[in-house]
């Protein structure tokens, strides 16, 4: 036990490190399939972090959150996506980007710094066991938002939203471990619903437009004279 005590922060820090790495990965990886894989990895990391934090002191809340996460994100979401989104989409070799990769990486780095700064300030204000989660969560949240901005493809954008959600939860399990369970369960239920709705929409877009490059849709705008 005491051994674990010593390892716990280290392990958690490692998980968080990989987590932020995966967030960066979402920004740069060019294949949809690979994006999905990165997302699955990220979700697994989230679940792992929940288990690590929930182990000592033992918190059934966090264990439950970990289980729900494990069930919904790495399993249910890929399933929904595979079922509902046309298969052709995954064959697209490269996703069109709004910003080129080096620039997006630089922007992501800047956002990560802001996230780190905010997280550090908050952690400094209130005592907390898992400081890394908060810091990384904030940074990954902002990076996830960047994914929405730079990806012009439907599925990666949705994965961006889910990645943001992951980031929020990564921070959440640290700062609100005893957040009312009913709320967490409902949130966990939200995520597959989200995937379901987005998939339907993606399919409709694909059917109507012929591709899922939602970034190309720009018909609705103002016409300044």
């Amino acid at each position: 036990m005491s051994n674990y005590h010593a390892f716990e922060p280290e392990i958690n820090a490692l998980i968080c490190g990989f987590f932020v790495l995966s967030a960066f990965g979402m920004v740069v990886i060019r294949q949809i399939g690979a994006c999905l894989t990165v997302f699955i990895v990220q979700s697994l990391l989230l679940a792992a972090s929940a288990f690590v934090l929930g182990a000592e002191p033992l918190s059934w809340h966090l264990i439950a959150v970990g289980c729900v996460t494990l069930l919904s994100k790495p399993i249910l979401i890929p399933y929904v996506l595979r079922r509902l989104v046309p298969r052709e989409i995954y064959t697209v070799r490269e996703i069109s980007q709004a910003l080129d990769v080096p620039t997006s990486l630089l922007v992501a780095l800047g956002l990560a710094l802001i996230g780190f700064a905010l997280g550090t300030r908050l952690v400094g204000a209130a005592p907390l066991l898992a400081k890394q989660n908060v810091i990384v969560g904030f940074a990954s949240l902002l990076i996830g938002a960047l994914v929405l901005a730079v990806r012009r493809e439907a599925v990666p954008q949705m994965l961006g939203i889910l990645a943001m959600e992951n980031a929020a939860f990564l921070a959440g399990i640290a700062i609100a471990p005893d957040f009312p369970l009913i709320a967490e369960l409902a949130i966990a239920f939200d995520v597959p619903l989200l995937a379901f709705i987005v998939s339907i929409l993606t399919r409709a877009v694909y059917r109507r437009v012929g591709s899922t490059a939602v970034g190309e849709l720009a018909a609705l705008r103002e016409h300044p004279q």
Binding site: A98, L99, L111, I114, L142, A145, L146, L148, A149, V150, R152, V214, G215, L217, A218, A219, L220, R221, E222, H223, P224
Partner: peptide, 21 residues
């Protein structure tokens, strides 16, 4: 201001992200 409404989603997300930052 209307020029801000150019119809491209990435721009819109950037506005929101900017506001957030």
């Amino acid at each position: 201001i209307a020029r801000l409404h150019h119809g491209r989603l990435e721009g819109y997300v950037f506005y929101a992200l900017g506001a957030l930052v």
